[in-house]
Design a protein around this nucleic acid. Structure first.
Length: 774
DNA sequence: TAATCGATCTTTTTT
DNA sequence: AGATCGATTA
């Protein structure tokens, strides 16, 4: 680009490499884009530029991402540059697959009314194949089947051995596929695998798609799996322009089949590939980028790149050593609460994100924030859809759409209790498989031969389904209040006109009616007496979400697909947010999020928590898996723009036991000089801890207990109840209890601070110093 | 067949 | 702490 040339403003703002990437044409392009280097801007600008300057039909552009959030952002930003980008196909891989299969699935014997099975459904189906097998084993097989599909391996593929070489696995996989085909549904893996199979088997279809899409772009390419690569290949014709964007340092989904080879070998797979590197980081200040880079530099298997921080100066990252996870929550809360006061810029709650390795860790922060009135949102926790009442309602709706769905049938046929146990249910499912009829028809025919009790129950269930069908055929007219309620819900941007919206509200009305008629609502209200009406609220939330869809079978199908593919509907139960305030209240809140979920996001201030051996990285990680954990650390750290904090606790509750833990190895990999350390580093001399008075009275002073005969655990461990002790982190305390466990004697200690800690005597006893109790 | 109890495991990350 | 599994009862 010559400097004198007049560029439109949307290109003017790009740096040289970004602009080169946008203006590139003709050959396959691999963009290696470091964290914060503006890759989304490049993709969205490229889309707009292709439409604007190259006169490309928006419909001929396909851009795929991995998350719904990324897909939405891509669409929004491209549209902001050029409205016409709205007609481009910007989707996740899976949603593209579903779209493809609704239209072309019949070529693989798939009815267009299929429902998408999630992992739980998959496990449930597999469990009915593997009767009497422990659930953990069923899960393992389900996991391996998913991986097999990620690697585009069918049950008869010799290469299946790379997943599981046993004949038994092959047979189970084959049987699972047979049952799933009989039901007529698909799982997540099928959304990629089946389209590839169709494109390979049907040259005419492949030809059609290659002509339709003249440009294909893939974001986060480092996370593509083998099947997704195959899909990309099949969609690419001789004239298709292919552009993929990725960063090998941010590959964090290997466990789910992502193949870094895809990005490393892209130039070989697509001959003549040009490579453009985006190495200017505009997001993080230099000290943060330095800390992040110093960690990921410890990885061996990487392309290697030099990311330059465009933003110098700023605060050094802070590493806090804290006693336990309650203190960690407190530390975060105070950090956040104080920052909102003393800042020249009016600090926002939404500046902050708290990152953790496992979803379970969010709870401690939620409790603390709730107590202090700090507004927060939990991103990406699937909790909402894991709730019994939601699963039940969805299963009922799924069965209405597909009366062959045995997983859904099993789940709802006896809810509420209708005297239909596993014996009856199995009988009907088997008969249906033999006769080839749907479960609904089979059940109808068989009612006569069932026991009196089962007969009555089955008749009731069939009535529920029949009336559900009727409701969808003739939607009840909605009441004025229902109309008002649904009106206030988030409205799809602009496309829907008055009439469509009105039709859409129909589904809420239908779903309400169906769920009430089925007795599921009542059933859960009764189950829920102690907890108030939370379950009913959750069902209401689900019903509200249905308001955007038509009150017909087709509308219901769309609704179910949307829910399976995008589970981002947040779980509001703890935050106590009402549906009405959702939009307005969502903006200014602290974000609680897993490391994995932060990909593609950025925050002014980030706290990375739980940086302890065993938790992050997990204990069992080594080799390539450890490198993936390290990349995950890198992803987290590079989310931070202005301030980065890290916390590591001395003890953590694991399996309900409080166990001492070591700081994460990753912390040692950061240059010492570039960190500010607060709190007492573990095993340090010169403790900053001020012990309480040793002569003060002890909690539950236990002279009486001392006179008791020693238990076996006491003899083995050498600890006795009432023994006084001192610990570097906790100060003085006394042993409250010594008991046996499967791992050996466990000692429970109550400290003068009121804190209770339990430890395994054989491993950790040395950290506690016995003191005499005169 | 349903519901409950206690013992005994288990704990990532997500479309 | 929570899920799961088997056994036991109404």
């Amino acid at each position: 680009m010559s400097p004198g040339e007049n560029l439109p403003p949307y290109l003017e703002v790009l740096n040289q490499e970004q602009r080169r990437a946008v203006l590139h044409t003709g050959k396959p392009l691999l963009i290696l884009a470091g964290a914060g280097s503006g890759k989304t801007r490049v993709i969205t600008t490229k889309i707009a530029w292709l439409i604007r300057e190259r006169g490309l039909a928006p419909q001929s552009i396909l851009a795929v991402t991995f998350t719904n959030k990324a897909a939405r952002e891509m669409a929004d930003r491209a549209k902001a540059i050029d409205e016409r980008a709205a007609s481009a196909m910007l989707r996740t891989f899976h949603s593209f697959g579903a779209w493809f299969l609704r239209r072309n699935g019949s070529l693989a014997g798939l009815d267009s009314g299929f429902v998408i099975y999630d992992d739980d459904d998959m496990i449930a189906l597999l469990a009915s194949i593997m009767k009497g097998v422990p659930k953990s084993e069923v899960k393992r097989i389900a996991y391996n089947i998913s991986r097999a599909k990620d690697y585009f391996l069918s049950p008869d593929d010799p290469a299946l051995a790379i997943i599981d070489s046993s004949q038994q696995f092959r047979a189970l996989y084959a049987e699972y596929e047979k049952r799933l085909a009989n039901i007529g549904n698909v799982d997540f893996g099928d959304l990629i695998k089946k389209p590839v199979e169709i494109l390979r088997a049907e040259p005419a279809v492949a030809q059609r798609f290659r002509e339709r899409f003249s440009v294909i772009m893939v974001d986060e390419y480092q996370d593509a799996n083998v099947a997704q690569f195959a899909l990309l290949k099949e969609l690419t014709g001789p004239d298709t322009y292919v552009c993929v964007v990725g960063d090998d340092d941010q590959s964090i989904y290997r466990f789910r089949g992502a193949e870094v080879k895809n990005i490393l070998q892209f130039p070989e797979q697509f001959s003549g590939t040009d490579i453009i590197r985006l190495e200017s980081n505009y997001r993080s200040i230099a000290p943060i980028l330095n800390a992040a880079s110093s960690v990921v530099n410890h990885n061996r298997g990487r392309l290697g790149k030099t990311l330059r921080a465009e933003r110098g100066g700023g605060k050094q990252p802070v590493l806090a050593f804290l006693p336990d996870q309650d203190e960690e929550a407190k530390f975060c809360a105070e950090l956040i609460a104080n920052s909102t006061k003393d800042n020249n810029r009016p600090a926002q709650w939404s500046d902050w994100a708290i990152l953790y390795r496992t979803n379970a860790q969010s709870l401690g922060f939620e409790t603390e924030f709730l107590r202090r009135g700090i507004p927060y949102r939990v991103v990406g926790s699937l909790k909402f859809y894991e709730r019994e009442e939601i699963k039940d309602a969805l299963a009922l709706l799924s069965f209405l759409v597909n009366p062959r769905d045995e997983v859904a049938f099993r789940r709802v046929v006896n809810k509420p209790t209708r005297g239909l146990g596993t014996v009856t249910v199995d009988r009907i499912i088997e008969a249906s498989m033999v006769q080839g009829d749907s479960l609904f028809d089979t059940a109808k025919k068989m009612t006569g031969v069932l026991s009196a009790k089962a007969q009555k129950g089955m008749t009731e269930f069939l009535k529920v389904i029949e009336s559900g069908k009727k409701i969808l055929e003739h939607p009840p007219t909605q009441t004025a209040t229902a109309k008002k309620k649904t009106r206030s819900k988030r409205q799809e941007s602009s496309g829907k006109d008055e009439q469509e919206l009105a039709a859409g509200e129909g589904l809420s009305v239908c779903v309400t009616q169906i769920i009430i008629d089925s007795g599921i609502a009542d059933y859960h209200v009764q189950q829920d007496e102690i907890m108030g009406n939370q379950r009913l609220n959750n069902l209401q939330e689900l019903i509200n979400a249905a308001s955007l869809y038509a009150g017909t079978i087709e509308g219901l199908l769309e609704f179910l697909e949307h829910i399976e593919l995008d589970r981002s509907l947040e779980d509001n139960s703890l935050a106590g947010k009402s549906a009405e305030t959702e939009n307005a209240g969502d903006i200014n809140k602290v974000t609680l999020i897993t490391f994995h979920n932060t990909k593609g996001l950025e925050f002014r201030r980030v706290i990375m928590t739980g940086l302890e051996q065993g938790l992050f990285p997990r204990e069992d990680k080594k080799g390539e898996e450890l490198e993936e954990e390290r990349r995950l650390f890198y992803v987290g750290a590079t989310r931070a723009m202005d301030e980065l904090y890290m916390s590591s606790c001395a003890v953590r509750r694991i399996f309900g036991r409080t166990m001492p833990v070591e700081p994460s190895v990753f912390l040692r990999e950061i240059d010492k000089g570039s960190l500010k350390i607060v709190g007492k580093a573990p095993r340090g001399v010169g403790s900053a801890w001020t012990p309480g008075s040793p002569s003060g009275k002890l909690y539950g002073s236990s002279h009486g207990r001392l006179s008791r005969t020693e238990s076996n655990a006491e003899q083995v461990s050498g600890w006795r109840r009432g023994q006084r002790l001192f610990h570097d982190d906790y100060g003085y305390g006394s042993v409250m209890d010594v008991r046996d466990s499967s791992e050996g004697p466990v000692v429970k200690v109550m400290f003068e601070t009121g804190k209770e800690v339990q430890f395994l005597s054989e491993h950790q006893g040395s950290a506690f110093e016995k003191i005499s109790d005169d």
